[in-house]
Structures are given as structure tokens and as C-alpha cells.
């Protein structure tokens, strides 16, 4: 019998305790934020969307090799001797045309492993994290300055040049052999 009344008392008392708590929380500042309007500040080293400063890229492909999910695709074309590509902001000489630099962000796992090996620090993580798309193909980012046609043209140019060189080389030994039949073959 005593337990019975005790239980009733405890029930009423605990309800009051609970009400006090919930009432207190009515006036506590909300911990949620109005997301699209208000955004939380990201940590300094947050890893989000990749960005490539293509002007600094020397086409060394180290990021491509470091990528664990193979989301970076790079194609390069050798610069012709008469073309000067200039230097990067870190002072490295550029020797290759980067005809293709694609990052498939839908595959990217934001590990940041591509960032560390880059000798010119041209690939890095930005703080952009709102880049959803309706079409999956839009998530493949093209960073190269070349359009596919231009890249093709460049390739052809180099091929022609190399062919020329080869022809020259082939001719030279022939000339040499004429002048000096005893030497080499």
C-alpha cells in the first residue's frame, strides 16, 4: 500500500521534473542553423572539391598515379622545340602540353592523396561542397585549356614533327654512309 502511493507520487514528481526540463529547452538557443542561408565555417584543412590550376601544371602525372580510385585522367603532348611554354609560378619549366586533365568528381573519395605529390602545388582541395548535378556526366570536370579538337590537332602536329625528325634521322645516316662507307651501320 505504501509502495502504491509512493509510485503515484514518483510518477507525478518525475513528470514535473521532465516538464521542467522540456520547458527549459523551449528557450534554449536552437543548435540547428538555417542551412542554405547560414553556413558553418569549414575547418581550415577541410577537403572538398578538387581544383587544378592548369597554368601551373607541368603534366608530371604524379597525381594521377597517386589517386586510389583513378578519377584523374591526364594526357600530355610534348612541346615542340620552337615552342616556349614558360615557367610555372614555382619556377619549374613546363615541357609538356597538358591536352587533357579530367577529374571525375563522382568517383573522387576526397582522400587528398593527389595533393601531396604535386611538385608545383597546382592541384588542391577547395572549400566548395555544393556541386550536385542532375546529370552524372556534368561531374567530370575538364581542367585542360584544350578542347578535344585542339588536343587532336596538337597531337597530329607533334606526330608530324616526330615523323619529320625520323625522316631527317633516317636521311642523315644515309648521307653519312655515303660520305664515309666504312663507319657504322
Amino acid at each position: 500500500m505504501i509502495q502504491y502511493f509512493k509510485n503515484i507520487f514518483i510518477a507525478i514528481w518525475t513528470i514535473l521534473v521532465g516538464l521542467k526540463l522540456t520547458f527549459k529547452h523551449l528557450f534554449v538557443r536552437a543548435v540547428t542553423i538555417q542551412y542554405p542561408d547560414v553556413k558553418l565555417k569549414l575547418p581550415e584543412r577541410a577537403r572538398n572539391r578538387l581544383y587544378v590550376n592548369i597554368d601551373d601544371c607541368i603534366g608530371c602525372r604524379q597525381c594521377e598515379m597517386a589517386c586510389p580510385v583513378d578519377c584523374i585522367t591526364i594526357e600530355t603532348v610534348k612541346a615542340l622545340p620552337n615552342e616556349d611554354l614558360g615557367v610555372t609560378s614555382t619556377g619549374n619549366k613546363k615541357r609538356l602540353w597538358v591536352t587533357r586533365f579530367d577529374i571525375d568528381v563522382s568517383k573522387c573519395c576526397y582522400c587528398g592523396l593527389c595533393v601531396y605529390p604535386c611538385p608545383t602545388e597546382c592541384i588542391y582541395m577547395t572549400d566548395v561542397y555544393e556541386f550536385s548535378e542532375y546529370n552524372r556526366h556534368n561531374l567530370i570536370y575538364h581542367f585542360s585549356n584544350f578542347t578535344p579538337e585542339e588536343a587532336e590537332l596538337k597531337k597530329k602536329q607533334v606526330e608530324e614533327f616526330e615523323l619529320e625528325q625520323k625522316m631527317k634521322k633516317a636521311q642523315k645516316p644515309a648521307e653519312a654512309s655515303v660520305n664515309n662507307p666504312g663507319a657504322g651501320s
Binding site: 522540456t22 529547452h25 523551449l26 528557450f27 534554449v28 538557443r29 536552437a30 543548435v31 540547428t32 538555417q34
Partner: peptide
């Protein structure tokens, strides 16, 4: 509104 504020949320805004 009471529900959200009790749970430290904002609710309809």
C-alpha cells in the same frame, strides 16, 4: 514550433 524548440531545433522558418 513547441516540438522543435523543445528539441533545440527551429522548425518552420
Amino acid at each position: 514550433k513547441v516540438a522543435s524548440h523543445v528539441q533545440d531545433r527551429l522548425g518552420y522558418m
